[in-house]
Simulated assay, not measured.
Amino acid sequence: MHIVGLPDISRNKLSPTLIVALMFTLLFISCASMAEEKKPESATENKPKVVNKTTAIKKPIELTKQHKEDLKHYLATEQVQPLLAGPDDYLTLVKRYTSANSKGVVILLPEWQQGATNPKAINYLRNELPAKGWSTIAIQPSNKPEGYPSSAITVEQQKEENQLTLKEYKSKLNSMLNAVMNTARKYPGIVLVIAQGNNAALLIDIYSQDSSLQPNALIMLSSYRQSNHAFINSLNEQFAHQVASSELPILDLYLKYDNPLVLNKAAQRKAFSKQEMKVYYRQRQLNNTVTGYYPEEELFSQINSWLKAIGW
């Protein structure tokens, strides 16, 4: 039987052109068939993947823990000493005096959120004072209390939450002070505390309630009380009254370019101290070029001259 349009394969040989055409036709049919077989599988692969929305995002490392790890990593092991205060542990940086005679020990307490090697003032004093006869104990403080100041809607709620938060923070600060004072009293000479910012103001509050924790003298650097806007004035006025009524010798230092709240409230402390005729109180403003950073030589000069003025 002969089909019109196709060559008679039984009688004639296939031409090369026809053979090539047949091969391409067979190849096309084979590829089409393979594509049909793989279609369900590829459709499955292209389905969107289900994302597990319950996967927890890791929180960043706490600032206090970062400071502790940095101190352990970068400083000599003999300088870094742990301090246990109740259930909490702290790190202290201890440097013994290197002069012929010992004058005493200086406890250095940075502002919360700052490290024990804070370059604004603390680290300079930590390294400079031992050559002048002072052993230094720099404390790595706790982080700023979480949720302080309160973000509650009403003023009453803010006050209540702030009081609870600060009560817990001051309790830990009190325990830490007790532990570090026990360590400091093992050194010969007097005990001097140099504290920054809010921690300096909280120390005054603690000393007014427990005189057994008081050092021989206190130096405050850029001190003030932070809180919600509704309580700023009352808290800093209370702080000023505590400074004026305290029998503790106090050197109150702040900067020309400082925290605006420090600049606004410094005059109040000085005025109240004059009214109370506080003898061992001196306030000085230091000239600085970089906001928050104390000029090193002038800072040391003010501390040294004040200590000599009160007999040390």
Rank of each mutant, 00 (worst) to 15 (best):
S171F: 08
Q163C: 00
E146L: 02
Q157D: 09
W134K: 10
Y124L: 10
K172L: 08
K132L: 11
Q140W: 04
P119F: 06
P130E: 08
N143Y: 07
N101P: 00
L109M: 12
S150Q: 04
N127T: 12
E156F: 03
A138V: 04
G115I: 04
K144I: 14
G147C: 14
L166H: 00
I139K: 11
N118R: 00
I153N: 14
P149R: 13
A121V: 13
Q157Y: 10
A121I: 15
S175I: 02
I139W: 05
T136N: 06
K103G: 07
T117V: 12
L173I: 01
I107C: 07
E111L: 08
E111I: 04
I153K: 15
V105Y: 00
N162M: 01
G115L: 02
N101H: 01
K159L: 09
T165P: 09
K144H: 12
Q113Y: 10
V105P: 01
K170H: 11
K159F: 04
T117Q: 10
W134G: 13
K167Y: 07
T154I: 01
A138W: 00
L109H: 12
E111G: 06
S151F: 13
Q157K: 15
L166Q: 05
N101Q: 06
E161M: 00
N118S: 07
S151P: 05
S175D: 10
Q157A: 11
A116T: 06
N118L: 01
A116R: 06
S171Q: 10
A138C: 04
N123Q: 13
E161A: 00
I107P: 05
E128N: 13
S151N: 14
V106I: 06
A121Y: 14
K120M: 13
Y169R: 03
S171G: 05
G115R: 12
M176R: 05
L173V: 01
R126V: 04
Y169S: 02
E161D: 03
E128A: 15
Q158M: 06
P149N: 07
Q140C: 14
E111S: 13
E128R: 12
E128Y: 15
I137P: 05
Q163T: 07
G147I: 12
G115V: 07
Q114S: 13
N127Q: 14
S142P: 02
K170M: 12
E146V: 02
V105F: 03
G104Y: 03
N118Q: 03
L108D: 02
N143T: 15
E156G: 02
